[in-house]
Simulated assay, not measured.
Amino acid sequence: MTRDWKRFLPFLISPLLLLVVWWWATAAGWYSDDVLVSPAAVLATLQELVASGELALHLKTSFLRLLIGFGTGAVTGVLFGIWMAISPRVEAFVLPTFQGLRQVPTIALIPILILLLGVDESFKVIIVVKAAFLTVALAAYDATKGVSRNYFEVARIYHLPKTTLYRKLIIPAITPPVFTGLRIAFSRSWTILVAAELLAADSGIGQMMQLGREMFRLDIVMVGVVITGLVGFSIDKIFKWAEIRLIPWQPAVKA
């Protein structure tokens, strides 16, 4: 067995064990098909949804909302976090409100946003923007605050331009923790989006699951659960892979 397989094998144990327990529970008849469908039935439904193009359509809609919302929230979050950290006036004025809003679960704002925005696309995008913005802004704020003040003093003594200060000092120093914040924010944004689609949407992976529940098609619901988990897992792995290659001076911890 090669070294790569030895490292990869432990990751297969828990998913395979879960699959065996799932199959065993359905084969033994512990639960009826209305409560727990078999892995074979879920696989057959997955193939059906892929063949009809329905799954691809729902995923495309969800990914579009995710990318627009996360992109907006991440960019504004990084800029706002740095601004809040380097400006004492902005920090004193904004930080208490920011910390208060950060404690409010994003999912708790869904009913309020539905009343204010309705159930159009803007609602789904804004809920993702909120989830990404606060997480990324906090990461950028803490990372910038963590940069030693001595560096700024040296830059002031040598009269370094602000562009050089940010490009050569601040950006490299805060990139690793900000990248970790981006990875966490992306995963949170995905879960929040699926939850929002479950409650109010006419398309998307969450709406597919909700429609399956209304039709008492637990197999469709389980397909949505599996796809949601796989997408979240893949997002996390892609960010870790990118972190290792884009930040060579501080490699990410492999997992």
Rank of each mutant, 00 (worst) to 15 (best):
F8P: 06
L12A: 14
W23P: 00
A25D: 05
Y31I: 11
Y31W: 11
D33S: 15
L36W: 05
S38W: 03
A40C: 04
L43D: 07
A44M: 04
T45S: 05
T45K: 15
Q47K: 14
E48R: 14
A51T: 08
S52I: 08
G53P: 02
L59V: 13
F63G: 06
L66Y: 07
G69Y: 03
G69K: 06
G73C: 07
G73I: 02
L79K: 14
S87W: 12
P88N: 13
R89P: 03
E91A: 11
A92Y: 14
P96S: 14
F98G: 00
L101M: 15
V104N: 07
L109F: 00
I114N: 01
I127D: 01
V128Y: 02
V129W: 03
L134R: 05
A140K: 07
T144A: 06
K145F: 02
V147I: 11
Y151F: 15
F152N: 01
R156G: 03
K162A: 05
K168E: 11
V178Q: 08
F179D: 03
T180F: 01
T180K: 09
T180R: 02
F186Q: 07
S187I: 00
S187H: 02
S187P: 06
I192L: 05
A201Y: 01
S203G: 08
I205Q: 03
Q210T: 01
L211V: 08
E214A: 12
E214C: 06
D219E: 09
M222G: 05
I235P: 03
D236V: 01
I238C: 13
W241N: 05
W241M: 13
A242N: 00
I247Y: 02
P248Q: 09
W249H: 12
W249S: 12
P251G: 10
A252V: 04
